[in-house]
Design a protein around this nucleic acid. Sequence first.
DNA 1: CTCCGCACTGTTATAACATAACAGTCTGCC
DNA 2: GGCAGACTGTTATGTTATAACAGTGCGGAG
Lengths: 184, 184
Amino acid sequence: MLETKTERVCGCAHDPATFAARVEQSCARDGVQLTPLRRRVLDIFSGSAGPLGAYAILEALSRREGKQVAPPTVYRTLDFLLEHGFVHKIESLNAYAPCEHLGHAHHGMLAVCDACGRSEEIEDEAVMRAIAATAAGSGFMPRTVMVEAKGLCRRCAEREAGATAHHRNPGVASSTSAPSGSRK
Amino acid sequence: MLETKTERVCGCAHDPATFAARVEQSCARDGVQLTPLRRRVLDIFSGSAGPLGAYAILEALSRREGKQVAPPTVYRTLDFLLEHGFVHKIESLNAYAPCEHLGHAHHGMLAVCDACGRSEEIEDEAVMRAIAATAAGSGFMPRTVMVEAKGLCRRCAEREAGATAHHRNPGVASSTSAPSGSRK
DNA sequence: CTCCGCACTGTTATAACATAACAGTCTGCC
DNA sequence: GGCAGACTGTTATGTTATAACAGTGCGGAG
Ligand SMILES: [Zn+2]
Ligand SMILES: [Zn+2]
Ligand SMILES: [Zn+2]
Ligand SMILES: [Zn+2]
């Protein structure tokens, strides 16, 4: 919610605040039906600093609508967004994150920060080629491939390095827990 | 349960039937405590043709013990096996599979067959190097990496190719559902 | 215009996956 | 004996996801 715009190699703007608007344009262009409900869920993603669990979305939605929303409503919306590649599921977190590379037929590697809970989607043509090659070598024909890494994002890694340099702090900065409805 | 021994590049025997015995040896060598309960769970893995969900293990265990077993019993056993690298969790399936590369400090890619439900663990030094490089390029410091592929294993791919060649069968061979407690 | 199908949403109930918290047992050590 | 630690049992509950069916609104065929 504090972070905006980070430049990447691919050159596209990943400003979370404009995520919903960009998806909206994409839908208009492709004749895909972006209903009010779906749009509200996109807004919720736009306003989040990290991946969201289905039930976190459910709560945000309930707050926004002023009345209780049921799980299938959320899961159906997520199905729609997943099918169209507007969001990705992070399996190791049971959470969902907005796609940061809308439009590219990217094959993304998801990197999740253990410290701040944010996720980022890294372009990785080389990784996917390596995986395809390895799979082919064993006779396996992949249809979908998922790569998820956990570790420290640049910001958190730098902050931690600084902390240890200053006062030899052994405790990990994990009091800064995940920003939104996911645990583990 | 029908399949035995498949030879791989790495040269180690992956016979599921001997999985429990091999883990047992490993524990004896390392002074790790392999209790009867843990051993029974290993046996259950040995007797399975594919990944097992926690509740599938629970049921198998309950049957074997003759009395109802509770979830924590299973999850604690799985924790033990995971910690020691004897089994892996397949996040995209919420299921667990025996390690096929006991002993190697492997970094495995898990390949799950959509048709027969089996999983295999493929060695992939190159993939892990590519991932590390990609991550480094974006400033991310990975601690753990997960690679999961879904598609067709060699056997199923061949069978399907044969089927389509013979009578132009459009229906996927998905009636041959997953072998054990997992869906999706 | 009417009827129908289709896409979307609402609602209730339940399935599937996972953990918290506390109690009991056994074993080895002081 | 008394105690600590590792393991297991037990009860209850939390979290994630889906099944099944009902209602609504809209556009096109007849
Ligand atoms: Zn993406
Ligand atoms: Zn971070
Ligand atoms: Zn392994
Ligand atoms: Zn197969």
